[in-house]
C-alpha cells in the first residue's frame, strides 16, 4: 500500500514535471507598421511565427478563456478575431472607425473600444457582434480600463486631456477629470479603489481615487542625462501583489519602477527606444515592453529588476499580451 502511494506520488510528480517542461507562454505583439503579429515563445525568447492581420494593428486583448485574441486593426476600421489555436482570423466585430485600444468587461461578454478619429467609445456585444452603444468622449480617446467589479469603464482622451468615467450599467458618462497633457494609459488597482493614469506630454503619472474621481497622488520622473521633456509616460502595469507599478517612459527609453508601499520611484530600467506598452506573463515573473522605434521587445526579470533580453519583432511594435500554452 505504502509502495503504491509512493509510486503514484512519483508518477504524479513525473507527470507534473512533463507538464511544466512542455508548458510555455506565448507573447503576441502587434506591429503597427507591418500589419502583422509577432508570436514570441517565452521559453526560447524568440519570434516563432508572424501572423498577418488587418492594417495598423494596435490594441490587442484575449477573451476570457484565452482562446481568441481581439485585435484593433485601426486603418481597416475593424476589430479582428484571431483564433489562437489555428492562428486564423475567424471573424470580425463592428468597431466604428479607427479603433485604437480595446478592453474586455470582466463578464467576458462586452468589449469596449476607443475610436480615435471620432471621439467615441464604442460598446460591443461579443455574442451578437453588435454595437450596443456609442458614447461621446473627448478628442482622440486612447487609454481604456474596466474596473474589476465591472461597474465602471474609464477612457482617457489625448487631446481633451481628460479621464471620462462611465457607468457600464447604462453606458452614461457620469464624471470627467482633467489630467496632464495627452493622457495615454489607465489601470485600476486590483481592489478597484484607485486608478492610475499616465500623461505622455504632461510627463506624469497620477493616481485617482475612484470614489471621488480626484487626483490623490502625482509621480514625476527624472532620469540623469535625459531632458525632462523627453520623459513621456505611456504604458502602466501594476503588479497584483500590490508592490510595484511599472511605467513605460516613451522616448526616455526607460521603464520606471514605483514602489507602491512608499509611493516613490525606485529605479529606472533601460529598455529599447520609445518604449510604449507593457505586459506581465502569468506568474508576473517577467514583464515585456514594446519598443516602437527600435522595433523590439525587452524582457524584464521582475524579481531581479533587470532587463535580461531584447527580442527583435516587426516595425513599430505597439500592443502586447501573453498567454499560457499547454
Amino acid at each position: 500500500m505504502k509502495n503504491l502511494t509512493l509510486a503514484s506520488l512519483f508518477f504524479f510528480a513525473a507527470a507534473l514535471h512533463i507538464n511544466t517542461s512542455y508548458a510555455t507562454e506565448f507573447a503576441y505583439v502587434t506591429n503597427e507598421k507591418d500589419d502583422n503579429i509577432s508570436v514570441i515563445d517565452l521559453s526560447q525568447n524568440k519570434v516563432i511565427k508572424t501572423i498577418p492581420v488587418g492594417e495598423r494593428p494596435r490594441g490587442i486583448i484575449f477573451n476570457k478563456q484565452h482562446s481568441l485574441a481581439y485585435i484593433c486593426a485601426s486603418e481597416s476600421d475593424r476589430i479582428q478575431i484571431l483564433d489562437l489555436n489555428t492562428e486564423q482570423i475567424v471573424g470580425e466585430l463592428p468597431s466604428g472607425e479607427d479603433p485604437e485600444t480595446i478592453a474586455l468587461h470582466p463578464n467576458g461578454k462586452i468589449i469596449y473600444t476607443s475610436n480615435e478619429d471620432d471621439a467615441l467609445l464604442t460598446v460591443i456585444d461579443i455574442e451578437t457582434a453588435t454595437v450596443i452603444a456609442q458614447i461621446d468622449v473627448g478628442v482622440e480617446p486612447e487609454g481604456l480600463a474596466v474596473s474589476p467589479d465591472g461597474k465602471i469603464v474609464v477612457v482617457t482622451s489625448e487631446t481633451t486631456n481628460m479621464v471620462h468615467w462611465i457607468h457600464t450599467e447604462n453606458n452614461t458618462n457620469f464624471a470627467n477629470t482633467l489630467v496632464g497633457a495627452r493622457p495615454r494609459s489607465a489601470k485600476f488597482t486590483d481592489d478597484g479603489k484607485f486608478l492610475w493614469v499616465s500623461s505622455e506630454i504632461g510627463g506624469a503619472v497620477v493616481v485617482l481615487d475612484v470614489n471621488t474621481q480626484e487626483i490623490v497622488k502625482e509621480f514625476t520622473f527624472a532620469i540623469r542625462g535625459i531632458h525632462r521633456d523627453r520623459v513621456q509616460p505611456v504604458g502602466v502595469e501594476l503588479s497584483s501583489d500590490g508592490r510595484f507599478a511599472f511605467v513605460a517612459l516613451g522616448p526616455a527609453n526607460h521603464v520606471a519602477v514605483i514602489d507602491r508601499k512608499t509611493m516613490e520611484v525606485d529605479k529606472y530600467l533601460l529598455v529599447g527606444r520609445r518604449v510604449w506598452q507593457l505586459a506581465f506573463n502569468d506568474d508576473q515573473s517577467q514583464l515585456l515592453t514594446t519598443n516602437g522605434i527600435s522595433g523590439d521587445v525587452s524582457v524584464i526579470d521582475v524579481k531581479a529588476m533587470k532587463v535580461t533580453k531584447s527580442i527583435k519583432v516587426g516595425r513599430y511594435p505597439w500592443g502586447v499580451v501573453i498567454r499560457n500554452v499547454p
Binding site: 461621446d136 473627448g138 470627467n176
Partner: peptide, 10 residues
C-alpha cells in the same frame, strides 16, 4: 471643434 469637445464636459 476640438476645444468644444473638451468644453462640453466643462
Amino acid at each position: 471643434n476640438d476645444s468644444n469637445t473638451t468644453g462640453k464636459f466643462l
